[in-house]
Design a protein around this nucleic acid. Structure first.
Lengths: 212, 212
DNA sequence: CAGCATCCGCTTTGATACTG
DNA sequence: CAGTATCAAAGCGGATGCTG
């Protein structure tokens, strides 16, 4: 990307992150790091192969990712985030919060990947008390199950079910997202089919933004 | 911008905000709204006139800004943020935080506008106790003075000096930014020429991120 | 198959000039 | 002041080909 050539910290960030696809590549790495080129391509439907290649090179040069040859028998290049790259998560979190509240329309033509939903859900949850005992929230939707863990290392999503959980949230992804982002109330969400199983007080652990 | 066509809230946000210049236009409006076309052009050195025109039309169509004819004797079009547009501030804040920590290099060739510095400083300050009495922080730098007010309406910057302030921070913009973002400690910042005048406890009011 | 590189048609951008 | 008009250059998306 051409630099904006402005002595402004937001503009400097966009000099690195502002290219088309770049932030979505970081979204994939936040969920999947470390992973292979093909895993990234699968999580980024629509990207041209040369562009993915170009962006990965630029991100490596800028110090946000590193590539390493996986040991045999895997024998593939693994891409993973550096600290600098992992630190972009709050940016993606705020994009997801804004997108949920102001730009989320479900188009049946759009592509969908199962791991995008727990990503969106996890960035909406801010742990109010990271020192408290860890909690596990299970998400169960028609498209699959995922688990969100909140402990001293932060709030992190994982695909699949957990052996045990403190709270299980069921329902359609759009309803759960709109509830977690504060667009709709708990009562409205439940009226739209969202279910809670377990200890509802777990929700108080998180800073669920209220509608302004 | 071409849509990514992904059922992902971050991708949906980027469908609206991901075009080149768009987020920087919102930065200007966060600082200057309402303002005129020419004010925006002045705050965005390097933008082509046709691009600014295109982006403003797109932002208006997406509902992030509105344009209104100013009453005489001003007789100019005024652009101002809607709630949807103002809600992008946390995204710019996280970009500025990341940029300060990981991508802030001062290039003497870069353009500079006086209002960019209080913008960057204000987004680094998160009020821990919005219910507490308002505080006023004055920034005094070689390029000008600005004031940051924290009250129940949030943390907001303003150009110029205030009649009174609870704390005055002096020094070079890069040093102040690196201190407020937690890249350097208070002691280091003071060794690099940053000065505090007034009640240093005001700093505790804000969540100044510590270096990881 | 993983990880690109090349080519090509199309769109977007940037720089400048011009207008009501 | 608030934009249009024009045009060259760069970037993007899609297809294909190459190499270990």
């Amino acid at each position: 990307m051409k630099s904006y050539h402005q002595t402004c910290t937001a503009a400097k960030a966009l000099d690195v992150l502002g290219d088309r696809w770049t932030l979505l590549i970081l979204r994939e790495l936040i969920m999947q790091s470390p992973c292979r080129y093909t895993d990234l391509a699968n999580g980024l439907p629509g990207i041209a192969s040369n562009l993915l290649s170009d962006r990965l090179r630029a991100l490596e040069h800028a110090g946000l990712i590193k590539r390493e040859a996986a040991p045999p028998p895997v024998a593939a290049t693994l891409f993973h985030l550096t600290e600098k790259g992992a630190a972009t998560e709050p940016i993606l979190a705020e994009l997801a919060v804004w997108g949920t509240r102001y730009a989320f329309e479900v188009d049946p033509e759009d592509e969908f990947r199962e791991h995008w939903f727990p990503f969106a859900a996890s960035v909406l949850l801010r742990d109010r008390d990271p020192g408290a005992p860890p909690v596990i929230v299970q998400l169960v939707t028609p498209v699959g199950s995922s688990t969100i863990t909140a402990d001293s290392n932060g709030v992190h999503p994982r695909m699949g079910t957990a052996e045990s959980s403190d709270l299980t949230i069921g329902g359609a992804p759009p309803v759960i997202l709109r509830f977690l982002s504060g667009v709709i109330t708990l009562a409205t969400a439940q009226a739209e089919g969202m279910t809670l199983d377990g200890d509802p007080a777990v929700l108080d652990r998180f800073q669920v933004t209220t509608t302004p």
